[in-house]
Design a protein around this nucleic acid. Structure first.
Lengths: 209, 209
DNA sequence: AAACTATTGTGAATATAATCACAATATAAC
DNA sequence: GTTATATTGTGATTATATTCACAATAGTTT
């Protein structure tokens, strides 16, 4: 089974391939993708072999075919719909983020307890939390994003799970308790910055020695 | 040398410890922190041993002491200043994100090429890109965030590096070329969602078998 | 068409990270 | 004060991920 890093790399290969396609490239070598994704060529080929993606010895890979194969693995053969709970800073930015549509990801609705944020007529409607369950069931939504404050995050998770959502990205700075049948990834902005601070300090110190 | 995951876990332990402190906890066991960070107790102790953090056999760890030790490792003994390049959706959300101040992280200025976004009188000023270098040097900034579109990201990185910034979080969906003396972490929102889609689909399929 | 070369694909080796097993020991119980 | 017990701390082991080494082979050159 592939690990998280491997899937992240697939996304990066796909990004690079889309750029190459835009430049009318027809074929590509593991070495090219390695450069684009800042990994080794063997890593690229090992990743591909895990998914039975093969090229031609000495001939490389066909760009179109490779995009198609990776897209299927990443679920990009159809639009994937997400909802967002919590329309604060982060929630609002996500709803308007232009990068998703290009990649077959659609944020179809936001939910918040604050009535002043509700707007059912907007292109992407902001709805009361009570309507989440019906909305999710009616539209067959499987994915959600939690962008509420830490104290509200566990409850937000449970509402989502009860409605049938199975994959969740959590921006709240707290570790959530999830049942085994769902996938929750945590993305903590403070933690990301703390990481950069640590490794920059470490690198600087090491460099001075 | 600790790896990235280890430092992420330290941040999570610290988060949990702050909550325990708010509840007037005086001591804590590796087992408690393990629950909070969703890892094993041995992992917690191994992480601590890497930094020579020790507790008392059968007595656990003192909350205050532990917070202080982890804070020092993560550079939280002083405020760490960041700037942001690119005041679009993401950049703006970050500038107003309330979670940073609590954690000794301060976003001190934003920069953009679009003059309509400039505002030097705001609490956190938005300045022209040309002023970045002077601002960074005068204020001794070491950290930055890239929140520009992909085509502008490499140039943004180089501007930052020339000004003396050494640690960077990159939100642009592209892999940047960086010299060895700096630290660049990529955080790609599309990629994060693709990851969730993949593992949710995988888990669902596996569950159905 | 034969020889050469660049590239893939993968088993084996290595490196890295997590877990196990248990000794050391501080605290609690009696 | 002695015994029992809960907890830490860590060397040894196992698991996981990456890199190495090289055989296979498609394309290129002569």
């Amino acid at each position: 089974m592939p690990n998280k890093s491997c899937i992240i790399r697939l996304s990066m290969y796909r990004n690079a391939l889309m750029r190459l396609k835009a430049l009318n490239f027809v074929k590509v070598f593991s070495d090219n993708l390695a450069d684009a994704a800042r990994v080794t060529a063997v890593q690229v080929r090992k990743d591909f072999s895990l998914f039975n993606i093969s090229g031609k010895r000495r001939g490389g890979y066909l760009v179109d075919e490779l995009i198609s194969q990776i897209s299927t693995i990443l679920g990009k053969d159809k639009v994937q719909k997400f909802i967002v709970i919590g329309i604060g800073n982060i929630g609002r930015a996500l709803l308007h983020y232009p990068g998703f549509k290009k990649n077959e990801i659609e944020l179809v609705a936001g939910f918040d307890i604050d009535t002043s944020k509700h707007n059912m007529d907007a292109k992407v409607p902001i709805l009361p939390l009570e309507e989440l369950s019906d909305f999710v069931k009616e539209n067959g939504i499987r994915f959600g994003i939690i962008a509420v404050p830490d104290f509200a995050a566990q409850e937000a998770l449970e509402v989502m799970l009860r409605s049938g959502i199975r994959g969740i990205l959590n921006f709240a700075p707290i570790c959530l308790k999830e049942p085994p049948e769902c996938v929750v990834h945590n993305l903590n902005l403070e933690t990301e910055l703390e990481n950069i601070i640590y490794f920059t300090n470490y690198a600087t110190e090491a460099g001075n020695k």
